[in-house]
Computed example of a mutant assay.
Amino acid sequence: MNMALFPDVVVNGEAIPSAAIAAEAQNHTAPKDKPGIAWRKAAQAMAIRALLLQEARRRDLDPDPEELAPERFETEDEALIRALLDEALSIIPVTDEAVRAEWAKDPGRYRSAPLWDVSHILCACDPRDDAARAMAEARAQGMLARLDGDAKRFALTARESDCGSKASGGHLGQLGPGDTVPEFEAALRAIAEGSMTPAPVLSRHGWHIIRLNAIAPGQVLPYETVRPKIAQALEKAAWARASRDFIESLAKGAEIKGASLAPI
Score class of each variant (00 low, 15 high):
P7V: 05
V9G: 08
P17E: 10
A20P: 04
A23G: 07
A25L: 00
Q26A: 09
G36Q: 05
A38C: 09
A42T: 00
A47N: 11
I48A: 13
R49I: 11
A50C: 11
R59I: 13
D60L: 07
L61Y: 06
D64Y: 04
L68I: 13
L68Y: 03
T75S: 15
E76Q: 11
A79I: 01
R82N: 00
D86N: 15
E87P: 04
V94C: 06
D96Q: 11
E97L: 13
E97R: 14
V99Y: 07
R100Q: 11
A101N: 02
R109N: 14
V118Y: 13
V118L: 08
A124M: 10
A124R: 12
R128F: 03
D129A: 08
A131G: 11
A134N: 12
E137H: 09
Q141W: 04
G142H: 01
A145M: 06
D148E: 15
A151E: 14
A151T: 08
R153Q: 09
R153K: 15
F154R: 04
L156F: 01
T157H: 05
E160T: 11
G164E: 11
G169A: 15
G173L: 12
P177H: 10
D179Y: 09
P182G: 07
E183A: 10
E185W: 07
E185G: 09
A187E: 08
L188G: 12
I191D: 04
I191S: 07
E193Q: 14
A199L: 05
L202H: 08
H205C: 10
H205F: 14
I210N: 02
I210P: 05
L212D: 08
I215F: 03
V220R: 13
P222Q: 11
Y223Q: 09
E224R: 08
E224G: 10
K229A: 14
Q232V: 04
A233C: 03
E235M: 12
A242N: 05
F246K: 10
K252V: 09
G253Y: 01
I256S: 00
K257T: 10
A259P: 02
A259C: 06
